[in-house]
Amino acid sequence: APSAPPPPPGAVLPPSLPPYFVKGSIIQLADGELKRVEDLKTEDFIQSAEISNDLKIDSSTVERIEGSHTSPNFAVVQFSVGEHRAQVSVEVLVEYPFFVFGQGWSSCCPDRTTQILELPCTKLSVGDVCISLTLKNLK
């Protein structure tokens, strides 16, 4: 069975923290262009989604951030998604980065993100608008 590619040498990642957030990871945009994860801009996501056949960009506003009952290493982030303001909660490691429109990578604990991933990161706050994806309506 195919397995996920290994993280870069030297990277020791906690479970649930994907390897592509490590600084220097190579990301392929929809037009084939390659960029480092730390160099991605809002426009890269928007333009990639425009090219995509089945995905489109949606905006997800952070409505609440609270500690997880499961572990102090996790946070629960509640988003209001899209024009219909659908409520979505995700439980993530506090260092898990989200991409904020016009701002870049942000996490609940940017110091840990920078420490573990070396990814430049700002503090994720209530009111931030993150990039999310939704499926285009296929007819």
């Binding site: 190579i26 898990y96 939704t134």
Partner: peptide, 25 residues
């Protein structure tokens, strides 16, 4: 001889942590 190591390349959409719920009419 040292074989060149292949660098993993990740698709852009893998960086977005979830798919928003789709809206039905």
């Amino acid at each position: 001889n040292v074989e060149p190591r292949s660098v993993p390349v990740f698709p852009w959409h893998s960086l977005v942590p979830f798919l928003a719920p789709t809206q039905s009419d």
